[in-house]
Amino acid sequence: MKTEEEEEEEEEWRSAREVLLIVLPYLPSLFELLSMTRVSRSLRDAIRDETALWTNIVVEPPLSSRLTDDILSDITSKSAGKLKTLILRRCLRVTDTGLRRVVDSNPLITKIIVPGCSGLTPEGIMECVVSLSKNNHKVETLHINGVNGFTKQHLSALLTYLSSSEGATIDLEVCPKCDEIRMIPACSRESCNLKQTNERKCRGCWLCIPRCAECSVCLGPDTESQEAACGNDDVLCLECWLVLPKCRFCNKPYCTNHSSRRHEIATTDAAARPSFECEACYYRAGTNPYEVDYQI
């Protein structure tokens, strides 16, 4: 027989769990969701059994390096076939077989975002998109930059299977300067946008036109730029470099797309400004708090 105090505590926990289940779908990535499963056994079970929490899967570094086909299949199976968004950033160990297994089990997927997943191939991506196009279903967003080997023929074929609705996107196209299949970002410089998109001189891929890693503005010889912490020779225009938070050691900022690589530094001073270390400075110290188990 439970005491009145125990019943009150149980009721408070039920209420708290209901609130958590409302908040959890807004967590930015799988890492945060898996971290929440360590709070308690009951919360872990609640997260595992709540299908709605698994309809949008986002895997980013540093978890990306540990994701395999089998782990991906296990994670996406928790959506019970209702997966809609699959975002895998730099998951080098995921193959065509693993992606196809997910697609076959989740025919409602509308977004496939797999930048830097070099274990995938154009043929594997094509098969997945064709499979999803059955029963009048269309993929609305397809981001495949970093998957090597795409040709004009692949691109042309993919476009026939993508949704024609407004807002549907694919992140690759033919660069008008080098004639290769690459990303062509929109320039944010006002003087460039005064002209038609196909006429502006800075229209080209990242290799043909130097750009700010944050705002994509073209960087001409008269534009002051600064090095970013992102690596790959990424640079930032001075305006973006000034406003972005910087590593406390090397004073280099990450662009927004790579902000997940920051290693935040905890502080007990509520008035202190948030502080972080970039990957290079952090791993130089030889510690890593991101050892999170995929199993829940």
Rank of each mutant, 00 (worst) to 15 (best):
E6H: 14
E9P: 00
E11G: 05
E11L: 12
R14H: 09
E18A: 13
E18Q: 14
L20Y: 10
L20T: 04
I22L: 12
V23P: 00
V23Y: 07
L27H: 11
L30P: 01
E32Q: 14
E32D: 13
L33D: 06
L33R: 15
L33Q: 15
S35N: 05
T37G: 01
R38N: 07
S40E: 03
L43N: 01
D45V: 02
I47K: 05
I47Q: 08
T51W: 01
A52G: 02
T55K: 14
I57N: 02
V58F: 12
V58P: 00
V59W: 03
L63W: 08
T68H: 03
D69G: 02
D74T: 09
I75K: 02
S77K: 09
S77V: 10
K78P: 00
A80G: 00
L83M: 06
L86G: 06
I87F: 04
I87C: 09
R90Y: 06
R93G: 00
R93P: 00
G98N: 10
L99M: 11
R101W: 05
R101N: 10
D104C: 04
L108A: 09
L108Q: 06
I112R: 03
I113E: 04
S118K: 13
L120A: 05
E123N: 13
G124Q: 08
V130A: 06
S133E: 02
N135W: 07
V139Y: 03
T141S: 13
L142P: 03
I144M: 03
G146L: 07
V147K: 04
G149L: 08
G149C: 04
Q153W: 03
L155Q: 08
L158D: 01
L159V: 08
L159D: 05
Y161V: 12
S163H: 04
S165E: 12
S165I: 07
G167D: 05
D171E: 09
E173N: 11
E173K: 13
C175V: 10
C178E: 09
D179V: 05
E180F: 01
P185W: 15
P185M: 14
E190Y: 12
S191I: 10
C192Y: 13
C192W: 13
N193E: 04
T197L: 01
E199S: 13
C202L: 08
C202Q: 06
G204M: 10
W206Q: 13
L207D: 15
L207I: 10
C208P: 01
P210R: 15
A213V: 03
A213N: 07
A213C: 02
L219F: 03
L219A: 03
T223L: 08
E224T: 07
E224I: 01
E224F: 02
Q226D: 03
E227V: 10
A228H: 08
C230E: 10
D233R: 09
D234W: 04
C237K: 13
E239Y: 04
E239T: 09
L242Q: 15
C250R: 11
K252F: 01
K252D: 01
C255Q: 12
H258L: 05
H258S: 11
S260F: 07
R261A: 02
R262D: 00
E264T: 12
T267A: 09
T268D: 12
T268P: 00
D269P: 00
S275W: 04
C278E: 11
C278V: 05
E279S: 03
A280H: 06
A280S: 11
Y282T: 06
G286S: 14
N288S: 06
P289V: 11
E291H: 11
V292I: 15
Q295R: 11
